[in-house]
Amino acid sequence: MIHKTRNDKIFDTLNTVILSLILIVVLYPLVFVLSASISNPLLVIRGEVLLFPKDMTLQAYARVFRDGEVLGGFMNTLLYASTGTLINLAMTTMGAYPLSRPNLQGRKVIMLVILMTMFFNGGLIPTYMVVKSIGIINTYWAMVLPGAISVFHLIVMRTFFENIPQELHEAAVIDGSSQIRTLWSVVLPLSLPIMAVMTLFYGVFHWNSFFNGLIYLSDQSKYPLQLIMRDILINSQMQDMMNLADESAVQQQLMGESIKYALIVVTSLPVLALYPLLQRYFVQGVMIGAIKG
């Protein structure tokens, strides 16, 4: 045990201070948005709400939850994220498991075929053309099929499967288990950590995705929440700044700002709620990917 020198103590204090400052910078905007969403909008715009909410009101939330468009987007995203993630998990497992078996013939060739897609792709328009030509444009499928497998995640999952002891497979074979049965009752129960990570990554991807909706959907009733958020948060922005003509417009603008804060909270909450539950797994998941990738 080596005792700390005076310099060490100075270093540790300084380090803690710097890190604390960084943490404040990262966390503050999030806390502020939460506080602003439940404060009197007038006080927010005057800059009087800095950390804690003032003159609390849930008016903005009431409006958000009454808005048909936002609710519709919320439901759409819920649908896209849940079925999309299920498809992702099934497809990624179906690709990763056979390729994790050391004796599978042609495994190297198939891996190469898969890896190639990481370095070269057709690009935006050719992919759009394919989605269009198979007739799923402006349908629900356009939101879940084009990204059904992330090659990166497939490789991560395959690495995880490879690390499951070979003896377990042999034991299953001796017991007369088919390969699919082995996957289902031996491999998958041991793969909960990787499944949790994949659920988080794929799920967050679907929840946050708006580019696919932007290019593949034209029907507004199918829009995911993020696209509706874009219309409200980003596209109204410049107008809002210029529409300061009269009193009632100011009132509207106040409420508008408040609604934006509330929307940000409502949209990020599901992801942030999922995060602590799965957090202990995902560092592990990223590391598996980092070692191989």
Partner: peptide, 9 residues
């Protein structure tokens, strides 16, 4: 874990 739309907003 936040989308760019949210961050942009």
């Amino acid at each position: 874990f936040l989308s760019w739309v949210i961050i942009g907003g």
